[in-house]
Design a protein around this nucleic acid. Structure first.
Lengths: 170, 170
DNA sequence: ATTTTTCATATGAAAATTCATATGAAAATT
DNA sequence: AATTTTCATATGAATTTTCATATGAAAAAT
């Protein structure tokens, strides 16, 4: 008989909205995931891992970043990144130099080969973004990015990064 | 001498905007990461992994989800999720039932213990979201979530999920 | 009613990530 | 100027994730 479009009728509450449907972090993750997913294929074609692409993209146009700066930019844990960069170095895509002043630091930067390897991807990334944002128009697109930037600005310092341990197990 | 607030003066280009600074996927990742990070601590206090929380949250209020539906909701790959659910089951937080009609499917749902375990977290999650969005006001907050929903709607079907292999290695 | 195809989930071996901690060096303190 | 503290990065062992593939079952085709 008059069967609802939604699954069952156990509860009378008019809107069977799941908790998730109104949960910002859920939608942020979903949006982030699917948008990035699309670009995965493009990246895969070049033979790079997505994490590798991320790191290289962070270095694009930079004169060099410390490992810990890269951690924050690429959202990769220090121990993970340390190993990833080692691999990139072995593939001749990045190089390391110890800083002049502070010899504790290591500056990671792109080699010429690294530059060449991702220059095309960066262009494609920008084109991809254009496509994604087209339906929203100039106005809304800027508004979205600005809002995201503000969210980040307000929350990036609430959980000190890089120091691996975020304490998790029971 | 007149040292700039910005790092160096190698390049004269007025706006040393990095590629990333205008790159939507970057800001989506960052926002998603930092917002979720804050809640990590809350989750950790309960002895749950963040991935475990995600899965349990997806089951909250549901009559049961198939493994593959959970993959899309929690953004976890099928093989990973299969193992995670096994652990949850061993801890008595979820249970599995084979479907009536289609015995290929398995419905995962919360046990009473599972419900109890995350009920408090769900409340805290909602409170957390309130705090995050307060500075933006009712209007902008809804706009943000709506935009994210639209982004997801337009892109979630461009890279069929669940089938693990997204093809990556060289 | 077989055979083939498709779908949902599981699993083992390989790879990557994480935690905990070590190392090496600068800064701060005594 | 020695000692302690703090900071940046690296590394080994344990854990988790991933890829590739297997299994079991329904649907479709013959």
């Amino acid at each position: 008989m008059t069967e609802n479009t939604e699954t069952n009728t156990q509860e009378q509450e008019q809107a069977p909205l799941r908790f998730l449907d109104q949960y910002l972090p859920y939608w942020l993750s979903q949006a982030s995931y699917w948008i990035s997913s699309e670009f995965h294929r493009e990246v895969a074609r070049t033979g790079l891992t997505f994490a590798e692409w991320r790191v290289l993209a962070c270095l694009y146009g930079s004169a060099g970043e410390t490992i810990s700066a890269l951690c924050r930019l690429a959202l990769i844990k220090q121990s993970t990144l340390s190993k990833l960069v080692k691999r990139l170095e072995a593939s001749n895509l990045t190089l390391r130099q110890t800083t002049e002043g502070d010899r504790r630091q290591t500056l990671v930067s792109l080699t010429a080969e690294g530059q060449a390897r991702i220059a095309g991807l960066v262009d494609k990334a920008q084109a991809h973004q254009q496509e994604i944002l087209r339906p929203f128009g100039e106005e809304n697109s800027s508004a979205l990015i600005d809002t995201l930037k503000e969210l980040v600005r307000e929350h990036e310092h609430s959980g000190l990064f890089g120091h691996d341990s975020a304490r998790s197990r029971r």
